[in-house]
Write a protein that binds this DNA or RNA. Structure first.
Length: 297
DNA sequence: AAGACGTGGCC
DNA sequence: TGGCCAAGTCT
């Protein structure tokens, strides 16, 4: 059990101390006056998305829909259009659905309990824990890709974590948490930040790392990853690419588009129709009479 | 539980 | 240049 070799209290102290000094302080959802809704929005927008791209869209959404009630009152298509090029646009739809659920079930407020959060569309284990912790000060175990990588390196001496988060890894993350709630809350954001700025996937800056001397991976000479091949994400020619192109056209059009303006979104017309159908099935596109298509009204 | 799901920057 | 990766979720 490598974790036993690393003094956790020292790890906590170093990482939290580093965060206080080097953590990004300008992020708007980290301001003391940030609302739970602002935190919630930031967490969903940040799923699989670099923060630099999130911030401008987050500001637009907060100006336009400052509360769940405001978003719930909008058309879903407005949310999809305002999502712009953030990627994974189903998140915009789910945000709209989540806002509606908050109005119906939680008096228009973001719920604070992990169970209530988990029941919302688009909210999984990570987001539920993150919102509980960052917006409500509940010291849940927050495990994202950054946390997984930092723990794999510091505690397990591995370059990267497993392909999927298993029970042993979840247990390790839970056991690595500080016992004191306030320290645990800082730890959650601090480890993520360390993974995002220093302990990055490629080209980690171990010379800047506050726990380089404690890190099992660094101490072992940073051995190369030797696990099963990590699956890549294909893109060129995939349905994802075609769906993205279709949605881009519909976003930019600001009006319903005839099929003739969509069917050349890819060389293979069959693929275009398949993708259009899937977008309709997902609720991201609404078909109208006469082969017209638009974002959902 | 493996694979789908957007988009763009980086080395 | 192109594969890798990014504060995951859903099926």
């Amino acid at each position: 059990m490598p974790s036993r070799e690393v003094p956790l209290s020292l790890l906590h102290e170093r990482v939290n101390g580093w965060y206080a000094e080097a953590g990004r302080k300008h992020l708007p959802w980290r301001e003391p006056d940030a609302s739970p809704w602002g935190v919630f929005l930031s967490e969903v927008m940040s799923q699989q998305t670099p923060l630099a791209r999130v911030e401008p869209i987050w500001r637009e959404w907060m100006d336009r829909w400052p509360t769940p009630t405001d978003l719930a009152a909008a058309a879903p298509g407005d949310a999809v259009r305002a999502w712009g090029r953030l990627g994974y646009p189903r998140r915009a739809l789910r945000l709209h659905e989540a806002a509606t659920a908050m109005v119906e079930r939680h008096g228009g407020e973001v719920p604070g309990s992990p169970a209530d959060l988990l029941a919302l569309p688009g909210v999984g284990a990570y987001t539920a824990a993150a919102v509980s912790c960052f917006a409500f000060g509940i010291p849940e175990v927050v495990v994202d890709t950054n946390v997984r990588r930092v723990l794999a390196r510091t505690l397990e001496g591995k370059a990267f974590p497993n392909l999927t988060l298993n029970r042993a890894e979840a247990k390790l993350a839970a056991e690595s948490m500080p016992a004191e709630p306030a320290t645990a809350n800082t730890w959650n954001v601090a480890v993520m930040e360390l993974g995002a700025l220093v302990c990055v996937a490629r080209g980690p800056r171990c010379d800047e790392c506050p726990v380089a001397d404690l890190c099992a991976w660094n101490v072992a000479g940073r051995p190369a990853y030797d696990g099963p091949p990590r699956r890549g994400q294909s893109w060129h020619g995939t349905d994802r690419q075609v769906r993205g192109e279709l949605l881009r056209r519909l976003r930019d059009a600001h009006t319903a588009l005839p099929l003739s303006r969509l069917e050349d979104s890819a060389d293979d017309r069959g693929q275009v129709m398949r993708c259009l159908d899937s977008l309709v099935a997902d609720g991201l596109v609404e078909p109208l009479e006469g082969e017209l298509y638009r974002l959902p009204g």
